[in-house]
Amino acid sequence: MIKIEMYGTAACPYCVRARRLLDKKGADYTDIRIDKDPSREAEMIQRSGRFTVPQIFIGERHIGGYDDMAELDMDEALDPLLRGEDLA
């Protein structure tokens, strides 16, 4: 099973949308809430190079934020990633 991690907060509308999309896809993911554990924010920044939420990782690949993930879905490229394909 592919490891999916999302850094986010409760109040961020893009985080809510990202969770909905992942839930709709039936993806099993780790929701890393930096509002509950602020120490994880530095980890997110180090891994992604970005300061905004959400930041989504599928496997070791940084997907980006919600808009990036939604674009992958529109291009029919998200489902293969969620299955662990095309992670090169």
Rank of each mutant, 00 (worst) to 15 (best):
L72M: 13
Y29R: 01
D73H: 13
Q55P: 01
K36S: 15
Q55H: 06
G64L: 04
R19Q: 11
G64E: 06
K25N: 11
M6R: 03
R61S: 11
P80L: 12
G84S: 03
P38S: 12
S48Q: 11
I56N: 05
F57Q: 05
P13G: 10
C15M: 07
R17F: 08
L82W: 05
Y66E: 06
D79M: 15
A10Q: 14
P38R: 10
R61A: 10
A18E: 03
E76V: 06
F51V: 11
D68Q: 12
R33S: 11
S48I: 01
Y14E: 02
Y7R: 04
E71P: 00
E60G: 13
I4T: 12
R50N: 06
E71T: 13
T9Q: 09
E76G: 12
G59D: 04
E76K: 14
G84I: 08
A27H: 09
M1Y: 04
F57I: 05
R61F: 04
G49E: 08
K24Y: 12
M74D: 10
G84Y: 12
S39A: 15
K24V: 03
T52R: 06
G84R: 12
I4D: 04
I58Q: 02
G49K: 06
R20E: 14
D67F: 13
L81K: 13
A11F: 05
I58N: 00
Y14T: 01
G65W: 00
E71H: 13
L87K: 14
K3D: 15
R47F: 11
R19Y: 08
L81M: 15
E43K: 08
C15T: 04
M6D: 00
D37L: 07
R40Y: 01
R61P: 01
G65F: 02
D28P: 00
D86F: 05
R83P: 00
D31V: 02
K36I: 03
F51I: 13
D68R: 02
L81A: 11
V16M: 09
G65R: 01
R33W: 10
F57W: 10
E5M: 13
Y29S: 03
A77M: 14
R50K: 15
